[in-house]
């Protein structure tokens, strides 16, 4: 939708430009400041942007972590060049490189860093959020079907950056119970 709108606006501007460049016999006088500047320069972008902003805020609001029933809390700590994951439902349990979550339930990932700035990004589950030393950022993710989802760091963090990835493994209900009980997934 964004792309389509942007293409339309781009084509519109290019058509205006092309029309302007074609040679005319007499310089046009009809269109003055009112049309060009007040109409196209002010009113047009203000309308488009107001709509866009409202859309962005509504979508953004929906992505926010809200407390609710059945939310699973996990922790993610980035370091050069590894991720450590912890689980509120299984205290003391720590996994490296693989984050286990239940499928079909909202999960809040509390993200932080042990050294430099990293960013937690699982493209198929959510946008990215930074891991900043001393701060905890909470990201809401939800996997609809069980399976493995690829995750990467997405803030440059030194020579090991390229290979700094992890996996999010979504389990069905039974496997999740097994995991919490301490059995190998």
């Amino acid at each position: 939708m964004l792309l389509g709108g942007a293409t339309l606006i781009f084509l519109f501007v290019m058509v205006l430009l092309a029309l302007a460049m074609r040679r005319r016999d007499a310089p046009g006088q009809a269109s003055g400041e009112r049309v060009w500047i007040v109409g196209l320069g002010l009113a047009f972008p203000l309308t488009v942007l107001a709509a866009l902003l409202a859309y962005g805020l509504v979508v953004g609001e929906r992505l926010l972590p809200r407390p609710g029933p059945g939310v699973v809390d996990v922790g993610a700590e980035g370091r050069q060049w590894d991720w450590h994951f912890t689980y509120a439902d299984a205290p003391g349990r720590m996994t490296e490189g693989v984050l286990h979550i239940p499928a079909g339930r909202p999960v809040d990932v509390a993200i932080t860093s042990a050294d430099v700035i990293h960013s937690f990004w699982v493209p198929r589950l959510a946008g990215k959020l930074d891991a900043i030393p001393g701060h905890v950022n909470v990201l809401r993710i939800e996997a609809w079907v069980p399976g493995d989802y690829a995750g990467v760091s997405s803030e440059y963090n030194g020579p090991g950056y390229t290979g700094h990835d992890f996996t999010v493994r979504a389990h069905d209900e039974a496997a999740w119970a097994d995991f919490l009980a301490g059995e190998a997934p």
């Binding site: 430009l17 006088q29 060009w36 320069g41």
Partner: peptide, 9 residues
């Protein structure tokens, strides 16, 4: 649009 308008002018 001021620039495109200038071209039209």
């Amino acid at each position: 649009f001021a620039w495109i308008g200038t071209l039209w002018k």
